[in-house]
Nucleic acid binder design. Structure first.
Lengths: 152, 152
DNA sequence: TCCATTCGGTTTCAATTTGAAACCATTGCC
DNA sequence: GGCAATGGTTTCAAATTGAAACCGAATGGA
């Protein structure tokens, strides 16, 4: 499961996250966790994934510090899986993926949900990338910089 | 490669995008494409992936309309792979993933790059989720709404 | 108390996917 | 023509996946 890049990509800050969540099911589990799911059975029913696979994915997410196991919540004997701070940090990845999905994958007549502001019920804004001074940036206006070379 | 959710998740706007790019290599290919890579050999050298796998992934990305094949560019005989509009839409996913990686995966002393505004060389801002009226939203302040039920 | 059921997994095993390496076809160059 | 580079495909072993069976502990009734 854990894929180690033996050749060391120059940009492991994409590769390393993908190592943690880069398989089909993990992000779906995280999404369900954002939706309040906590228990093995809930995830299994929601995703329809084989139990051994779910078991392995949950273990992996816990190992990566994205989920953590908490003793109970309704006094039951079994534990539950909840997002850690690190796991909640994936919110923006999910929003980005979802907005991309809304734009390019929602066919006409298909049932689809989209993300709204709970308070008003209105759709949220699209994500934007901004410069430090607030300017809106396009992909072409950004680049990767080596921290040691040009922080000035 | 293509994983069909037979059970139809209620939220296929996460699952469908993952079906297109939800394996380890595809997003890395897209990232390299944003970095200006266009040719089979460039991707192969950058990623260190087996050629048959790269071949399959490129084919898949083209099939999903994320990359397209263009005839040449330097007059050479071979074609090149460039991002489509849909592919460029993945910019926000990459930024989100990268910022998450910067936050949780960059160990001290490790070489790492981060994203800067080309014009100023300064780091870009963190992504934020905003309501229609501009309020900053946390994960808990959003939910998914059925388009047909509550657009009002 | 005893039996059945649910929950949360693990084990087993066949089928699919992956990846390394070998191979192949075309183009460009001398 | 010969030779290397590019851009793949084929082959085959190894790893991963997934469906189903199994299992143990904790309820829940009769």
């Amino acid at each position: 499961m854990v894929k180690r890049t033996s050749h060391q990509s120059a940009d492991c800050l994409i590769a390393r996250p993908l190592d943690a969540i880069g398989d089909w099911w993990s992000l779906l589990i995280v999404r369900d966790a954002f939706d309040g799911m906590r228990r093995f059975g809930e995830f299994q029913k929601s995703l329809g994934v084989a139990k051994n696979i779910l078991s392995a994915r949950l273990r992996n997410l816990v190992a990566h510090g994205i989920l953590e196991i908490v003793p109970a919540s309704d006094g039951g004997a079994h534990h539950e899986y909840v997002l850690t701070e690190k796991g909640r940090g994936l919110f923006y990845v999910l929003v980005a993926l979802r907005q991309w999905g809304e734009t390019y994958f929602s066919g006409p007549g298909e049932p689809y949900t989209f993300m709204v502001d709970t308070r008003t019920g209105r759709p949220i804004r699209r994500l934007e990338v901004h410069a430090e001074d607030g300017r809106l940036l396009t992909p072409g206006e950004t680049r990767l910089a080596d921290f040691r070379r040009a922080p000035e």
